[in-house]
Simulated assay, not measured.
Amino acid sequence: MSNDKKSLKDVSSQAGELAKSIWLAGLGAYGRAYDDAQEVVEKASKESPRLFKELVEKGNKLEAQAREKLGDVSTIGKTASIEERISKMRASLGFGHTASADDIERLEKKLDALSKKVDALTKSSASAPATAAPKAKAPRKAAAKKAPAKKAAE
Score class of each variant (00 low, 15 high):
Pro49Glu: 07
Ala152Lys: 15
Lys135Ile: 03
Asp4Ser: 05
Lys117His: 07
Val73Thr: 08
Ala29Tyr: 14
Lys109Thr: 01
Lys5Ile: 01
Ala44Gly: 02
Phe95Tyr: 15
Met1Tyr: 08
Ile86Pro: 01
Gln14Lys: 11
Glu17Gly: 02
Glu83Gly: 09
Ser2Tyr: 09
Lys109Cys: 00
Ala142Cys: 03
Thr122Glu: 14
Glu63Trp: 06
Lys46Ala: 05
Lys145Trp: 06
Thr75Ala: 07
Ala101Pro: 01
Ala142Arg: 15
Glu39Trp: 05
Ile86Asn: 05
Val11Arg: 13
Lys146Val: 01
Ala143Leu: 10
Lys20Met: 04
Lys145Pro: 00
Lys145Met: 05
Leu114Val: 03
Val118Trp: 10
Val56His: 06
Ala99Gln: 08
Trp23Lys: 13
Arg85Met: 14
Leu121Trp: 12
Lys5Phe: 07
Lys53Pro: 00
Lys5Arg: 12
Lys137Arg: 15
Asp10Thr: 05
Pro148Phe: 15
Arg106Cys: 00
Lys61Val: 01
Gln14Glu: 10
Asn3Trp: 09
Val40Arg: 13
Tyr30Pro: 00
Phe95Ala: 10
Lys5Leu: 05
Asp102Ala: 11
Pro129Arg: 15
Asp102Arg: 07
Ile104Met: 05
Leu55Phe: 13
Leu8His: 09
Ser2Leu: 04
Leu111Ala: 12
Ala91Tyr: 09
Glu108Thr: 02
Leu18Trp: 12
Asp102Leu: 04
Glu108Met: 02
Leu27His: 14
Ala128Lys: 15
Ala44Trp: 13
Lys58Leu: 06
Ala64Leu: 06
Ala29Ile: 09
Trp23Pro: 00
Lys109Ser: 02
Ala37Ile: 00
Lys6Ala: 05
Asp103Tyr: 05
Leu70Asp: 09
Ser45Phe: 08
Asp35Gly: 01
Glu54Ile: 00
Gly96Arg: 08
Arg140Glu: 12
Asn3Tyr: 13
Ile76Ser: 06
Glu39Ala: 06
Asp10Val: 01
Met89Leu: 14
Glu83Leu: 12
Gly28Thr: 08
Glu47Lys: 13
Gly26Arg: 13
Leu51Ser: 05
Tyr34Ile: 01
Ala126Gly: 13
Leu114Glu: 10
Arg90Trp: 07
Ala153Tyr: 08
Gly59Cys: 03
Lys46Trp: 03
Lys135Cys: 00
Ala25Ile: 08
Ile22Tyr: 13
Glu105Gly: 00
Lys110Ala: 01
Phe52Thr: 06
Gly28Lys: 15
Glu17Pro: 00
Met89Arg: 14
Arg32Gly: 03
Ala15Ile: 03
Glu154Phe: 03
Lys69Asp: 02
Lys145Ser: 09
Leu114Asn: 11
Leu62Gln: 11
Pro134Trp: 15
Ser45Glu: 14
Thr98Lys: 10
Glu54Ser: 03
Ser74Trp: 11
Lys53Thr: 02
Ser13Cys: 01
Pro139Leu: 11
Pro129Cys: 04
Tyr34Glu: 09
Lys150Ile: 00
Ala15Asp: 04
Lys43Ser: 07
Ser81Asn: 12
Lys53Glu: 09
Leu114Ala: 13
Lys58Thr: 04
Leu93Phe: 09
Ser87Lys: 15
Leu27Arg: 14
Thr75Asp: 12
Gln38Ser: 07
Gly16Ser: 12
Ser127Cys: 05
Pro49Cys: 03
Glu17Asn: 11
Val73Gln: 11
Gly31Ala: 14
Phe95Thr: 03
Ser48Asp: 06
